[in-house]
């Protein structure tokens, strides 16, 4: 049916007036996407191409900008700090994406149940997402401080700690992940809520008649039917958290030592502190390649046997 509709919309060919109509048909359709393509070209595509170009130059904003071929990439691949930053980034991205893909499902399921004040809770749960990174960072630094943080103070009252959440090399990335979970889970929660509302209720009714109960329905109906949404959330979260910057920048400044030093943090530093734009953009290009590779892997393995 769909293909027949599409075919019927195609313009006629083979005659002079048909060619004119074909041209008009294409122009008319492309006109709709021109504004987007224009903005995309100016604000996305051109910077991407410019970054790619800059990565082959010793580009330091002021002064001469000699072409140096792959020298920036060579330096990067032989740079210990790049590998430290990449390791931390991969660790953070996978841990945070895993948390932000799974935890919001259960919160969305809970908030999808009918109860009084449900919308207030949805708002409250979503609210941290609208806070700026600096606000979240400052609040978390106060909360999680080792000596004077409120969390450690409360733990101390029950004889636990103090725990160096953001000052311990082993704990810092998990702590930043949990902070990010609190901050950002509103968005995947909304996506899941939208997905949940699309699952037909009669499937649950049928399952109920067959004797299925809470967890069984979640496991055998809700989660399988949410798989396309889960894949979407997993992919977007991974892409997003590979680009982590604000949390280490505001909360830990890359420390302790270099244990929360991430790729974008390093890129920012190279470009805006060392003024080495060429070197910084080489990092951006490599990170984009890595993100693309992981995204393709996700689609390859996560996209199979989707149940719509």
């Amino acid at each position: 049916m769909l293909s027949r509709i599409r075919l019927s919309l195609l313009p006629e060919k083979h005659s002079a007036s048909g060619t004119w109509r074909t041209w008009k048909w294409y122009v008319g359709n492309y006109a709709f996407i021109v504004p987007f393509m224009l903005l995309f070209g100016i604000f996305i595509l051109r910077p991407i191409l410019a970054s790619l170009q800059m990565s082959f130059f010793r580009w330091e904003i002021f002064g001469p900008k000699p072409f140096i071929g792959f020298e920036n990439y060579d330096e990067l691949l032989n740079d210990d700090l790049w590998w430290v930053a990449l390791r931390n980034t991969v660790y953070f991205a996978f841990l945070t994406s895993a948390l932000l893909t799974t935890v919001p499902i259960f919160i969305a399921i809970a908030l999808n149940m009918p109860f009084r004040g449900r919308n207030v809770f949805r708002t409250l749960f979503f609210f941290p997402y609208v806070l700026s990174a600096s606000v979240v960072g400052l609040v978390m630094r106060w909360l999680l401080g080792q000596q004077f943080g409120i969390v450690n103070h409360l733990l101390g009252t029950v004889g636990v700690g103090p725990i160096p959440f953001i000052a311990d090399s082993e704990l810092v990335i998990p702590s930043l992940s949990v902070i990010t979970l609190w901050w950002a889970f509103g968005f995947p929660m909304l996506i899941y809520l939208a997905g949940l509302s699309n699952i037909p209720q009669d499937i649950y009714e049928a399952a109920r008649i067959d004797g299925a109960r809470g967890w069984q329905m979640t496991r055998y109906i809700t989660i399988p039917l949410l798989r396309p949404i889960i894949l979407f959330v997993a992919v977007t979260q991974l892409i997003s958290h590979f680009q982590v910057f604000a949390q280490p920048y505001v909360i830990t400044n890359g420390g302790p030592g270099q244990d929360s030093f991430t790729v974008i943090f390093y890129m920012f530093r190279a470009a805006w502190t060392y003024f080495r734009m060429g070197f910084g953009t080489a990092m951006a290009v490599l990170l984009a390649v890595i993100i693309m590779a992981f995204t393709l892997l996700q689609f390859r393995f996560g996209g199979r046997r989707l149940e719509y």
Binding site: L81, A167, D168, S169, P256, G257, Q258, R269, Y274, F275
Partner: peptide, 24 residues
């Protein structure tokens, strides 16, 4: 002429040692 980059190298090195809980 690239003092900021040089400073980061020795500051980072000391941070790695001082903040390593005596392991580095």
């Amino acid at each position: 002429r690239n003092w900021l980059e040089i400073e980061a190298q020795y500051a980072d090195a000391m941070a790695r040692a001082f903040e390593s809980e005596c392991e580095v």
